[in-house]
Amino acid sequence: MPKRTGEPPHHNNLTCYTDYGCRLPECVERRNAWQRNLRRKKREGQPARVDAQPIRAHLYRLQAAGISTYRVSLIAGIDDWTVRAFMPSTTGRRARKHTTSPEIAAKILAVTPEQGTSAYIDGTGTRRRLQALVANGWPMRRLPEHLNLHGTYINDLINGRQQDRPVFAATAEKVAHAYEQLKDQKPTRHGIEARVVKRIRGLAAAKRWPTTQYWDKYPDAIGDPHFTPEYRKLRAQILAEEAAWLMTVGGLDRDQAAARLGIARFTIDRALREHPQDELETAA
């Protein structure tokens, strides 16, 4: 396929690499991670792609029950665009997606009419969206005017005092809508002083709250409670955590852990020397 000319419209998925020849380090790593995941699935005998027709039929059944694709995306923890791409457009154009990954298929097919009409849904995506806005420099005291939610409740959600608790579906929709409106806007354009924005970003960075730009790279993971963001973590720290988990939970020795991770033994040794607390924390 010939490469497209000009700058890619975004760097959120593989198209900037495959279609535009983009070679930014993060885009190259995204492609490499995709290839590693594909090879792993092949080794384990998992299908790389599955037919989208069962998903489309399921979405039609949910729509008949009064559940929108937007509500489905919130419940499944998947980007709204991903869900809508399985359905024909309002102008009558055919659906854009004809295959998808087994993980996306499983998340959508797991959504039931009962979940869709429930007053509560998982709050992971709501918390992460609020934290990402703060990481972009939005002060918490300025968010209520955009969310139509009480400031104390927003503060509880952002700081984890509501951790692992479900949220009202209406609250999740308010936050998701405001998130889409604010994620690409600069707080300074809304009268927030630059020094305040810098201070808020610093506080969020200290807590390792990913920014909206980070979640743009993983749009289908922001609402997934099983996805652990590796924001601002060095590769050696990630390897140390993975190796320590394999050794303490999986019962492997260092050579076996290295083989499982597909890296050399000395790489694990060096990672654990640089981040010894990760081994201790995992063993605790």
Rank of each mutant, 00 (worst) to 15 (best):
H58S: 07
I268S: 00
I104H: 02
L59R: 05
I154C: 01
F168E: 11
Y60R: 13
G202S: 12
D278Y: 13
R265C: 03
F168C: 07
G191E: 12
T18F: 14
Q131K: 12
V28L: 14
Y70L: 10
S89W: 15
R235M: 06
A244I: 03
A106N: 07
T188C: 04
R36P: 03
W245Q: 04
R199T: 09
Y218V: 08
K183H: 06
T188L: 02
F266R: 15
V72A: 02
P113C: 11
A283I: 06
L24R: 15
M247L: 05
H58N: 08
R270S: 04
I78P: 01
Y17C: 05
P187I: 05
K97Y: 15
A76G: 00
H58G: 02
R71M: 08
Q213Y: 08
A206H: 03
A236S: 15
I104N: 09
H275T: 05
M247F: 01
G66K: 03
L147V: 01
P276Q: 11
K198M: 03
K97Q: 15
K183G: 00
K174P: 03
H190D: 12
T228N: 10
P9C: 01
K41N: 09
D156C: 11
L14Q: 11
R270C: 00
L280W: 12
T248L: 07
H58P: 04
G77T: 05
D216V: 03
R254L: 12
S73D: 04
L59N: 04
A65T: 00
A119H: 10
N136H: 14
L130N: 07
A105I: 03
F227C: 07
I67R: 03
G251F: 06
A132K: 00
G137P: 08
T15G: 05
R232T: 02
D122W: 07
L38F: 03
R254N: 08
S68E: 06
E230V: 09
D216Q: 14
L149V: 05
D278H: 14
A76M: 04
R30K: 15
P88F: 10
R93T: 09
P88M: 11
D269M: 13
I158P: 00
E103V: 09
M140Y: 07
D278S: 15
N13A: 13
N155Q: 06
L272D: 03
L157M: 15
N32D: 15
R165N: 09
I238T: 12
T228S: 12
L133N: 02
Y218N: 04
G262Q: 08
Q181C: 06
E145W: 08
R273A: 13
L246A: 08
K207C: 04
T267R: 07
E103R: 14
Y218Q: 05
G223T: 04
I158Y: 02
L280N: 04
I67N: 03
D224M: 05
T126L: 07
E103P: 01
E242I: 02
